[in-house]
Amino acid sequence: MILKQQAFHPFKRLCVLLSVSRRGFYAWLNRRPGQRGQEDKVLGERILALHLASRKTYGVRRIRVDLQAEQRYCGKERIAKLMKQLGIKAAATRQHQVTTDSNHRLPIAPNLLNRHFSPPGANQAWASDISTISTQTGFLYLATVIDLYSRMIVGWSLSGSLKTPLIIDALTMARTRRQPPTGLVIHSDRGSQYASALYQKTLKNYGMVCSMSSTGCCYDNAVMESFYHTLKVELIYTMKLMTEQQASNAIFDYIESFYNRQRRHSTLNYLSPMAYEVAA
């Protein structure tokens, strides 16, 4: 307090008001930090570096896993205290916009997935969904396909149109990349795009089996909901309103460079999707 207020108030007056002797103040000022203080300084610098490496997204849990990977072991409370002192924290949440239009009379597929979000291997069960990205000139729509085994985004597409080709482009990317076997289950909500004849025909041509959520139940597609929540919190909400090109570049970089390859996922024992598949 004295250090902060010296520029505004007389030093002697501050010492009197705070019941601190001048000798005691100077002794404190020249005192070297103890071993714990020195360790906290080094640890704090590393925590800051890890937080920046995570694109300012990691909170206490993921920072702790990163430290453990470097053979640095410390409690969550200590990390939380140092993060508070450094003024860093995980990104905050906001509300999301609903893009599902299930008010239609198109045929609906049964819920084959039934919330079984952990298949025994890759390319056995995928999930897909659409989300809205706000830009300076309006909305973009992002469709993604995720492999439920490793939580890897295997296909995605960004467009100014919410029509069916958006989700087919994402699905085609996923199929081209992964070459899944016939019979793969792909789950989605009951949106008109997923129930459309064009999408259903594409699934048939690709040898995939359609599964759809129950009416108005976001939990049936919880993995996709979670991914979009993470994307918005860690990327979209941290940036100023972008142009469409900036949004496209940022989403490409986030998915392909960070989320799939680097970001630790709690469901995967804090491995990244790629590391989880490699370790399998």
Rank of each mutant, 00 (worst) to 15 (best):
K4V: 14
H265E: 06
N221V: 06
R190S: 12
V278S: 14
G216I: 07
N260G: 14
Y259H: 05
A197V: 09
R62F: 00
D189N: 07
N30R: 06
V60T: 13
G191T: 02
N123Y: 05
G37I: 00
V98E: 03
V278Q: 13
S131K: 00
D220Q: 09
K76W: 00
A80E: 10
R31Y: 11
V42L: 13
L29S: 05
V42G: 08
I63N: 07
G37L: 01
V20M: 14
I168M: 10
L48M: 13
I255E: 12
K76S: 14
F227R: 01
P181L: 12
T164S: 07
H265Q: 11
C218H: 09
V185W: 01
N30G: 14
Q245A: 13
R72T: 14
C217K: 00
S102Y: 08
A109N: 03
A7T: 10
C218D: 08
L271T: 08
A127M: 13
Q95C: 12
R36K: 06
I255T: 10
R175S: 12
G191C: 08
V16N: 13
A69Q: 13
M1K: 01
P181A: 13
G75N: 05
L112W: 03
L271N: 12
G155V: 03
R23S: 15
Q245C: 09
Y199N: 07
I133A: 14
I133H: 06
A92Y: 00
E39F: 02
Y259M: 04
S19R: 00
W156T: 03
A91K: 02
A122R: 11
D101R: 02
K4Q: 15
A7I: 02
N123C: 13
L268F: 02
R264T: 06
E70D: 15
L158W: 05
N30Y: 11
Q245W: 08
R46V: 01
L142K: 00
L268P: 09
S157K: 00
I88S: 04
M152N: 12
Q97M: 07
L140S: 07
N114G: 08
H265D: 04
S214P: 15
D253L: 06
Q85D: 13
R36L: 11
L184N: 03
I108F: 06
K81I: 01
N260T: 08
R177K: 05
S131P: 13
L113Q: 08
L86W: 02
L140V: 04
Q262G: 08
A280K: 09
S159R: 01
Y206R: 00
P110E: 06
S21F: 11
I79V: 06
R61I: 11
Y219A: 10
R64V: 03
P10D: 14
E244G: 05
H9K: 06
D101F: 04
R177N: 12
Q5R: 03
K240A: 12
S266K: 00
I168Q: 02
R13W: 13
R46M: 04
D253Y: 05
Q136C: 12
D169M: 05
V145L: 09
I2L: 10
K4D: 15
R46N: 04
P10G: 14
Y276K: 03
M83T: 02
G59H: 04
N260I: 07
G37M: 01
R61M: 14
K56M: 09
G75R: 00
A27Q: 05
T202S: 07
D253T: 10
Q262A: 11
P120L: 03
R178V: 12
T176E: 15
L148E: 11
S131I: 08
L3Y: 10
M274E: 15
R178H: 05
R64T: 07
Y270F: 13
N260M: 02
S134A: 15
